[in-house]
């Protein structure tokens, strides 16, 4: 086992053991914090497929996070008020069932990602960063000015959505769902990176001309990566909205896009468990620095600046060495 693999198991197990301890010690707030880490890490794992593997610096992943959130909010709001989502041409009711909500969140995120990606991937570099940011901002303003689903105030859901066989209102059970999804997606993302598609995508990042020369189109590879990445971030958005039982346009804000990206950088770009380490570090900073100073984000900014300038490779890079492990 390489150092990174053992570090990954420590991080993965740590995220499981902390809430189990909290459950034993009756500290539900710690369980909720761990759930938040798992969900935000999931969003980061999604972005990491585009950013780490594909080299696509998307500064607009809040768009998909928000779409996931609103997919949950809109479906659950209709179920809560017994008003069908649409009656024509066929009847669609709202739902409180998590698996259906997840599916809708992922499909809608993926469809929007096809549109945004098809346009944005015509460009590269700085243009791509600015355009993805702008599209996310477009959805943000749309969510604010569209009054049907709460507009600026957002939507509250009274009861958490249901999962067959579990009581999702019990914090540890909801954590279990989120943790299981995170692990499934990490395993998927590890397989994806080693699959022919993942190798071609990484090659397109390193040398576009060579990939073209062997007869593949980098544009298609990147679009596929962008769409997969968006669907995962959308799933995380749906879970996040369920955690808070609330969804608002802030899930679309550029600050959210920045935060998801920060998780990856704090943890380490293109590292399998980078987003998990980064999200855990971020939430811990927020939790421990928050009570000390109202202006804790100054410290966060300073830390981030130091990581970018001096500790490239993030937390995992610093602890496990520069070489990116392939397992």
């Amino acid at each position: 086992m390489s150092r990174e693999t053992s570090l990954n198991s420590v991080i993965g197990l740590g995220l499981l053991l902390v809430p189990l301890w909290a459950y034993w010690a009756d500290e539900p707030f710690i369980i909720t914090l761990s759930t938040k880490v798992a969900i935000l890490a999931l969003a980061g794992v999604g972005l990491n497929i585009a950013l780490g593997l594909g080299g696509l610096v998307s500064f607009g992943h809040a768009a998909f996070f928000g779409i996931g959130g609103y997919a949950m909010g809109i479906l659950a709001a209709h179920a809560q008020t017994y008003v069908p989502l649409m009656e024509w041409p066929f009847l669609i009711d709202g739902t409180k069932s998590m698996p259906i909500i997840w599916l809708v969140a992922m499909v809608v995120s993926a469809l929007v990602a096809v549109l945004i990606g098809a346009l944005s991937l015509r460009t590269s570099g700085v243009y791509f960063i600015m355009i993805t940011l702008a599209f996310a901002q477009m959805l943000y303003y749309f969510a604010i000015s569209w009054p049907a689903y709460g507009g600026e105030d957002g939507l509250s859901i009274y009861l958490r959505n249901s999962f067959p066989g579990l009581n999702t209102l019990v914090p540890i059970q909801f954590f279990g769902i989120c943790y299981a999804l995170l692990m499934i997606v990490i395993a998927f993302s590890a397989r994806l990176a080693r699959s022919p598609f993942g190798l071609a995508l990484a090659a397109a990042r390193q040398n576009e001309e060579r990939v073209e020369t062997v007869g593949m189109r980098p544009y298609n590879l990147r679009l596929a990566a962008f769409v997969i990445s968006a669907a995962i971030t959308g799933l995380a958005g749906a879970l996040y909205a369920d955690l808070n039982r609330f969804v608002s346009p802030t899930m679309f804000s550029w600050h959210m896009s920045g935060e998801i990206m920060v998780f990856i950088i704090l943890g380490g770009v293109a590292r399998l468990y980078g987003p998990v380490a980064g999200a855990a570090l971020y939430i811990m900073l927020e939790h421990f620095l928050g009570p000390i100073s109202e202006y804790w984000q100054i410290y966060l900014g300073a830390l981030l600046l130091l990581v970018v300038l001096f500790a490239r490779g993030g937390l995992i890079g610093t602890l496990a060495g520069r070489e990116v492990a392939h397992d």
Partner: peptide
């Protein structure tokens, strides 16, 4: 550009 985005985001 990724480093630039993050460092200026930190700023």
């Amino acid at each position: 550009h990724l480093d630039q985005v993050l460092a200026t985001f930190a700023l």
